[in-house]
Simulated scan of single mutants.
Amino acid sequence: MKILYGVQGTGNGHISRARAMAKALAEIPSVDVQFLFSGRPESEYFDMAVFGDYMVRRGFTFYSYAGKIDRVKTVLNNNIWHVTQEVKALDACQYDLVISDFEPITAYAAKRQGVPSLSISHQSAFKYDVPKQGQNMLDKVIMRYFAPTQHSIGLHWYHFNQSVLPPIIDLAPIASVSSNGAILVYLPFERLEEILGVLQPMNIPFICFHPDCQQVTRAKNVSIRPLSKAAFQDALMACEGVIANGGFELPSEALSLGKKLLLKPLAGQFEQLSNVATLDMLGLANTMETLNVDVIKQWLSCSECQRVSYPDVAKALAQWLAKRDMSSLPLLHQELWSQVVFPEHVNELLSDFWPNHQRKHAMFNMRLPVISNKKAKQH
């Protein structure tokens, strides 16, 4: 079985998820996978050995500045004609299946050439009736047409009685998890100088990974490090908590390791707004709208978050793909969610609001709170 696997390269979360899938698919001799990445320059990819002889295309990307989406720069720096040429030039007919993790070149090449296609992504979860916040008509159009496929598998932290699967996580041995008291900070869309200005007044150690950093350095109590998969994983395994934007993969990894979370969504990005609101509602993370010393200090005083136990979704998905039986997806859904174990306080919250479906969605019409005192006490 030959698979063309397209990955959106604008976010490291997509790549991290693809790493887990690459390892799982490599364990199946009957499957041969070719990876393609788009959305960032080839020179900006790192730690890519697991993907073998991967391909890179320009594709589409987005731009941000100071924690906000820069819509003007995003429009001006994306070339639809160039992307169309990349789609036409890609030969998808040699593959039995095209998988897209929100990657448009492979998705449209498969559609154009009549090759079976499947999306496996967090974005696909928003096609279902899951909590959404800040979504406008443009967001709906992007979700529907950015990387369209014949079939889709969405990934989310909770199923919300929809056909979505638990997160794909590059699982690490739980025995190696510890807590050294440091806080891991990953805010790639914020300006580094602004991050340092907020963290330095506090008398605790921070480890900050940022794309603007070229070599390891220190600024008072903040260790500043360049992006590195191995170094980042080591810091994540050993930290006490994580401060991050509102992506999907890093919070999933942190929850699976029992690390407490403080999340600041990227302004203007409905997916991040929805992610942060969902985790806040489930009692699994605290939130802030802006970088704020007082909010961070309040969060630091909270006790450690309890761990969410997720199964090895990548392995299960790889085995399911090898069987080529789309009709068995409901069984896979049931099997995986039956293995998820939430902390007790999450089960209590779910039992409180789940019976009233309308009330659950009404919660997401409210303004995103700076931080929830109720959740802080539960943590």
Rank of each mutant, 00 (worst) to 15 (best):
A182M: 12
Y186D: 02
T287G: 08
V295F: 09
S179M: 11
L291Y: 00
P265N: 05
Q200T: 09
A182Y: 11
V177R: 13
C239S: 11
L291N: 02
V293Q: 04
I183L: 11
I204V: 07
L300P: 04
I174R: 10
V216A: 15
F206R: 04
C302E: 10
L279N: 02
I207W: 10
A235K: 14
N203M: 06
G258K: 02
P173W: 10
D212M: 02
L261G: 05
I207S: 12
G181I: 02
Q269P: 01
A285K: 03
V295S: 04
F248Y: 15
L266G: 03
R218K: 02
D280M: 14
A219W: 15
H210E: 00
I296S: 04
I195N: 03
Q200L: 09
G283D: 04
A244W: 11
K220T: 03
E194D: 11
D234H: 15
N275V: 01
V242A: 12
L257M: 15
C208H: 00
A175V: 11
R218H: 04
G241Y: 14
V177A: 13
Q272P: 10
R225T: 09
A182E: 15
I296L: 00
L284Q: 05
I195W: 07
L184Y: 12
M288R: 08
T287H: 09
I224T: 07
S178K: 11
M237V: 14
P173C: 13
F206C: 00
V293D: 05
G247H: 12
F189S: 13
K260T: 10
E289R: 15
V222G: 03
S303A: 08
Q272F: 00
F209L: 04
M202E: 07
L196G: 01
N180A: 07
V242C: 11
L284C: 00
A277T: 02
K259W: 05
S301R: 12
V242N: 12
S176K: 14
L184K: 00
A267R: 14
G268D: 09
L184N: 09
A238G: 15
I224R: 04
L257N: 07
P211S: 07
C302T: 07
W299S: 07
V276C: 01
I195S: 06
V177S: 12
A175R: 12
L187A: 08
L236W: 06
M288L: 05
A182C: 12
M202G: 03
P205K: 09
N292I: 05
D280G: 10
S252V: 10
I204S: 02
G181Q: 11
F248D: 07
V185F: 09
H210R: 09
N203P: 02
N221I: 04
E240Q: 15
C213L: 14
I207H: 12
E194A: 11
N203I: 08
A267M: 12
S303V: 07
K259G: 06
S178G: 02
Q215H: 14
E240C: 14
S223N: 13
F209Y: 00
S178Y: 08
D294V: 11
V185N: 01
T290A: 06
K229Q: 14
